[in-house]
């Protein structure tokens, strides 16, 4: 469990370093290996942020599926914003509703809150344990179960597999 954290943070740091340098030189690869190994041992030997991440093939396939669903929602939300901004009558019906999540880990909730912020007409405002308060630009139903079904459910079925 401890080594999973170190290995995942090492891969993250090393890939970022190689992308920033953008060439394969023996000195650059050597410095990147040494520094990212040192940093991941020094910082991430106690942290637990990657402990529950599912790195089996099923988790990786679900990660890519989630990525495509997320990109589609992002483009849809931007077209929605453009339509609302251009319309002369400013069609908004805002309110703050409460939704519930079944995700247990911190990183899963972080990714879910970020996804809620970038999907059509919603903005996550506060997280208290398993409740998320969402500012919704066009409230269709203020009830908790229906709002959860409409906002959270489309991401949760992927994130539950990836982050647990």
């Amino acid at each position: 469990m401890k080594f999973k954290n170190i290995i995942l943070s090492f891969i993250l740091l090393f890939v970022t370093w190689m992308l920033l340098n953008n060439k394969f030189d023996i000195q650059i690869v050597g410095v990147g290996l040494v520094v990212s190994l040192f940093v991941s041992f020094a910082v991430c030997s106690k942290c637990e942020i990657f402990s529950k991440v599912n790195v089996s093939p099923k988790g990786i396939i679900y990660f890519f599926l989630y990525f495509f669903v997320f990109m589609g929602e992002l483009i849809k939300s931007n077209l929605d914003v453009a339509r609302r901004v251009i319309a002369p009558s400013l069609p908004i019906n805002p309110g703050i509703v409460e939704v519930e999540t079944q995700l247990k880990t911190k990183i899963g909730r972080l990714v879910l809150a970020n996804s809620i912020t970038l999907t059509p007409g919603t903005l996550s405002m506060d997280i208290k344990d398993d409740k998320i308060f969402v500012h919704w630009i066009n409230v269709t139903d203020a009830d908790k179960e229906n709002a959860t079904k409409e906002i959270v459910a489309k991401f949760e079925k992927y994130l539950k597999v990836i982050y647990g």
């Binding site: 908004i92 019906n93 805002p94 309110g95 703050i96 509703v97 409460e98 405002m125 506060d126 308060f133 409230v139 203020a142």
Partner: peptide
């Protein structure tokens, strides 16, 4: 125009 504020 706000309809509902659960956070308040």
């Amino acid at each position: 125009k706000t309809v509902v504020d659960k956070m308040a």
